[in-house]
Design a protein around this nucleic acid. Sequence first.
DNA 1: ATCCAGGATCTCC
DNA 2: GGAGATCATGGA
Length: 294
Amino acid sequence: MKYETIDDIVIVREWNSFEIDQILECGQCFRFEKIETDNDVKTYEIIAFERVLNVRQYADRIEFSPCNKQDFENIWIDYFDLKRDYEIIKNVLYENDIVMRDAIEFARGIRILNQDIFEVLISFIISQNNRIPQIKKVIKNISMKYGSKITDNAYAFPTLTQFEKATDAGLRECKTGFRSKYILDALEKVDSGQVILDKNAFSTADEIKENLLQIKGVGNKVADCVLLFGFSRHEYFPTDVWIKRIMTKFYFNNKETSQDNIQKLANSRFGEYAGFAQQYLFNYAIQFPELFKN
DNA sequence: ATCCAGGATCTCC
DNA sequence: GGAGATCATGGA
């Protein structure tokens, strides 16, 4: 990947497996806005790591702005997972798997973002029994209420310290609903050190998961999302209703099966790339909901 | 109006 | 250890 810096714009001219609309709209993150998409350029605005980033993708270049060289190298290369070769992953997942082939071909430009762990934790607590547009609204409400103002209309996701003034009533004003008590429990346990959101604090991913599961409102699926999207544990395969539907239909001959069987199949078939497979499949499933209507 | 959503928990058996 | 109700909120 080659890039250069002009004023406050970083321009990438060579890349593979990067389509900004697919990366953001595939359900892994919530703090973005589509500015425009036409034939020449796709423009999105992202809020992450206390910054607002504008991404403009043309046929021959991708522009990141405002962005200096340091931020690009210290933050965004990791955030967009730009050092990983997704062609290798896709080739492995392709083998002997016509379903994965279709899912990947449908969105070859997906990448798994490396997001802030704390933000991922709170965001996916909010995601339970909820819809993506509503999740985005709630997170935006929370950021406006407790987070720092970055620009005129962009607020950073609150830090743990900023969340200290959060109350049940305050969170409910942000439309968190019944999840407010779960958020408060997460905040308390992270603050006390009972739950540790540090990539280096545990030797195995299963220990991280055990640690996360102590939080009231964090179950198997939310924990797996935090592991995959926050802790960069790409072998985890978050199994929500959509994954259940698409796995049941295409890998279990449309016959209902247990969560455990789905996990086992994902592990044996996708292995260390299960998390990537999950994102291709999830994205594929939500784009064709009519496939799963009985 | 009724149903359901990137689930988890509680209750009951 | 599985099945069913419940949890806010809002869009279809």
